[in-house]
Design a protein around this nucleic acid. Sequence first.
DNA 1: CAATCCAAAATTGTTAGCAATTTATCTGTA
DNA 2: TACAGATAAATTGCTAACAATTTTGGATTG
Lengths: 231, 231
Amino acid sequence: MSTRAQSEIQRIVERLGSAIAEHRLPPGTRLVEAKLVEVLGANRNHVRAALQKLASEYKVVSIIPNRGACVAQPTVKEARDVFSARIVIERAIVDQAIENLNAKNRHRLLKQLEKENDAIQRGERQEMIRESGNFHRVLAQIAGNDVLDELLAGLITRTSLIIALYQETPNVQCSIEEHQALVDAVLAQDRARATQLMDAHMGNIQRYLLLDERPKEVDLQAALQEGEALG
Amino acid sequence: MSTRAQSEIQRIVERLGSAIAEHRLPPGTRLVEAKLVEVLGANRNHVRAALQKLASEYKVVSIIPNRGACVAQPTVKEARDVFSARIVIERAIVDQAIENLNAKNRHRLLKQLEKENDAIQRGERQEMIRESGNFHRVLAQIAGNDVLDELLAGLITRTSLIIALYQETPNVQCSIEEHQALVDAVLAQDRARATQLMDAHMGNIQRYLLLDERPKEVDLQAALQEGEALG
DNA sequence: CAATCCAAAATTGTTAGCAATTTATCTGTA
DNA sequence: TACAGATAAATTGCTAACAATTTTGGATTG
């Protein structure tokens, strides 16, 4: 596969991936190949390859054979596992980031906080989501472990999709105050406090989700059984 | 893509992946599409898709545009990052596995140890590698987090490739004694000891690798400069 | 003999068109 | 109206042939 094709596929992956992460494509949305070809101005083969990748690698797309792709609807179990895995990785990242602190990194962190605040000031919802995700990526990059960074990137996208699916009130995912407190602890190189704040931060995000036992399907069933007559 | 095609691609991925992990395909080996088609009795499209996946998702294959695929040769930095990430995940898994212990899980662990011992008794090198990897997977499955399990699966394959590349004396990767000690600590539900043993275990594997600063290429250069005359 | 160039072979990359399947629409019947 | 069946439309899945690129091997030349 040529570099050109490869980067074209990557372009589509990122375009679709961020649209899903930023809640422009809600869970369950059908992703028809022909439509994507039209909208993205792309080759059908590239679109298909990108969808395959979003399904098998990032798991934010579901592909049903002969019936096409749609934005995934992760189960409660999967949602729990993603959060729990993410906490594991985020903790390690905070720890390693503190170890790698230097003037340049400190600057990067503060600048990222500014970006987030900016997006909040301007009320740009999608930008807020993107930048609050980027905050975690910046920490990962400061930690300096490319493998952890990549694993986290995938989990952030999945987390975003989970929030879109399970968070009723359209809150933003990360509170800027918590990010601020985290940065304070990291800059002070206070490991214990920083990891504890990260735990609490993840816990708070999870707390606002509807991850109690009942699966989503029950809603539909209940609606059909007790629903008012149509028409 | 049909289920049939999907599982065919998966079959090829696993076939190649395990061949790489079990050191039957050493780093640098060229993977020519036509050859793979012949050997695996597969469709060329499926082979290509599998190679793409092994490259972009598992990172055990490198694809150079217009020049084909070969078994990857991870850099020292990548090797370090993989190990460091793996330690993070393994620690978490040990912790969660202890939490989820029950009669069935205890049995599974002991049975896995038997398999490893068996392979060692019979001196089956590739089976030893496979089963020592499976040991870590069993722990992950006991931990019960599918996301962590999948992340670990990828890291185990990468670790195996790294060992093939950087371990001069062809040792087996995991010592059975260390696995035995780990199981003891897990069964005793001694968190502190278990995580510490896992750390040590990973550390020992890493210790036998040649991950000092000089890159691999230097070997070739040196050989060419100081080599004896041919013929 | 080394270096350069050219043609042939090997290998990977791309595409269009058709096949197969699913979904939607229409029609007739009770 | 409700339902079943048939037909058409939409959509995905597959392949074979062709295009592009790189590698190989040898011929030519200084």
